[in-house]
Design a binder for these strands. Sequence first.
DNA 1: CTGAAAGCGCTAACAT
DNA 2: ATGTTAGCGCTTTCAG
Lengths: 349, 349
Amino acid sequence: MKFEAVTIKDIARALGLSTSTVSRALRDSYEISPETKQKVLEYSEKINYRPNPIALSLKEKRSRSIGIIVCEIANSFFSQIINGIESIAYDKGYNVIISQSHESYEREVINTQYLASRSIDGLLVSVSSETQDLDHLKNLHDRGFPIVFFDRIVEEMQTHKVIVDNFQGAYDATEHLIKSGYQNIAALAGSEYLSITKERLGGYRKALEDNGRKFDPACIQHCLHGGMLYDEVENALTQLLKLKTKPDAILASADKLTTNCLRYFKKTKIKVPDDVAVIGFSNLDLTDLLSPSLSVVRQPAYEMGQLCTELLIQQIESKRPVKDFERRVLPPQLFVRESTEKCKENPKN
Amino acid sequence: MKFEAVTIKDIARALGLSTSTVSRALRDSYEISPETKQKVLEYSEKINYRPNPIALSLKEKRSRSIGIIVCEIANSFFSQIINGIESIAYDKGYNVIISQSHESYEREVINTQYLASRSIDGLLVSVSSETQDLDHLKNLHDRGFPIVFFDRIVEEMQTHKVIVDNFQGAYDATEHLIKSGYQNIAALAGSEYLSITKERLGGYRKALEDNGRKFDPACIQHCLHGGMLYDEVENALTQLLKLKTKPDAILASADKLTTNCLRYFKKTKIKVPDDVAVIGFSNLDLTDLLSPSLSVVRQPAYEMGQLCTELLIQQIESKRPVKDFERRVLPPQLFVRESTEKCKENPKN
DNA sequence: CTGAAAGCGCTAACAT
DNA sequence: ATGTTAGCGCTTTCAG
């Protein structure tokens, strides 16, 4: 069942004008007499005329839509990012087409190709946990297709990039743990391939070293699927808790890692923060409701979404090829709550 | 910076053929000789030819994209619904364009018009809390535009509708509270305009009456924004707690109502479930992590998304106008957890 | 000031 | 088996 819309031709026929006159009248061209304009405007208003954007796209060779590739929209951080993206996109007359990789490299490739073939004007990408090979993106990029990376970026490609200062976020969190008196701080990290993982572990390590602690790689466990699967988190934590120097604090470096970490501790009746403290990167809106309330490093997700969209649209609309790519680094925020508070018997040192 | 893609014309020129021959070869038409096909296929493979979907859309008068209108994607229920929608849409070669009303009627109207003008082939709608006037949707629907409602439906329009059995969900939750020994069960409800609110309150009332309790309208408070604003929830609860028969249990009828309700109790140091029990409609993935863990009525969101998308695409692709509209009602699931467990001193009766 | 015609990429009816 | 042409809706020269 097709939905037949009114066209410029219908207006022309009804008013005894040519399509070009109608077109010009609608765009308020100076070449059209006021009376004709008046007539055209009135009539198209009456029949509720709307230009066909597809015809426009064909002509202008642009679709006014942008694609987004994220791992999962059912994730606070990404849904907040998407809110930011949409707010700018709609303002500028673009619509957005969202696709999810579910942390699968294969799906990321398929989605990229699908989006690219759907005539989007540009792409906002946060790569999947599994992604190592970047040909699917490089191909597009090499042909001049606008791509902006956010959050999980890729150093090998020259594009705009928007991230949070992951190093600093992890540094602050780790230092907070140290200052609160925790001795053995382990890291529950995401995929080793991800930029964010490397950056966060970098900050973790530096904070330890700056505070005279020794950095031990054994205190790091990676979860390839970024904590999306409960089992990988359980395995990782089991490993960590088996260490000779048993951790008394965990730094979880992503949303799902953090929540699945809490889930594991709840399941195994390990008390937070009495037995082990937990701080995580998280944009959950509910961290205050958990019990104990959760200490987190929070990212300005909405702003990140806005910023990368602005950069992308700017590039799409730029007259000449963009050569100067920006790397915008936003500050994370540390929220200290109960999950990293030493119990009263052992006050902070 | 435009991104110039390869067209059928380039292939034709390179191979000394006409565009129609190339077009036919690509679509494997029987009229084309095997040799020509071979050549065309090879060459287009080589230069990585992709048909321009916009040109196709213009020709076929369909865009192979569907629009979604929801209040908020940063809401578990809706992000799960969207996952379900995407899974089917991508399978069938459609892409989805999501827009958020943020519970504002005005934005819903703007988004509807925007989407409609972007040549989508159909629309999946869950109306905003504020929506009463339906002209923006009726206009489209009257012109034969495919619309499917889900979750927050609208009785005045003859379309496919996919919902959960809200009446039953609320009935079960209320009965569970009664059976657990709670005496004064109040309802924290969403906007009075919404179908789901009416259905859920219907179930609440019936369960009370079936169990010999009297139904008191004073025990219901509505939040126009569905709990999106903390203040409206705080006000509503303050009212409820002032009642002469102070509630010992709350039935919250939506995700945000539930979480903001917990937030209020946490803030005011009201103990759940000792001072007051809480059960809510919620699709949060974290209800088990809350403390006390939260009893909920959960909706099969993913399946709802899949189902409404199937119905929509079926209607879009139907040869003749669809007259028989379906109303699919999926079962909700009750999960009993700690937030509605009477403390040990007063065991269940 | 207005109209005719071409063209965006593709398909299909109509030649040949 | 292949080519020519028209047309999808719209804008934009180019001609009056």
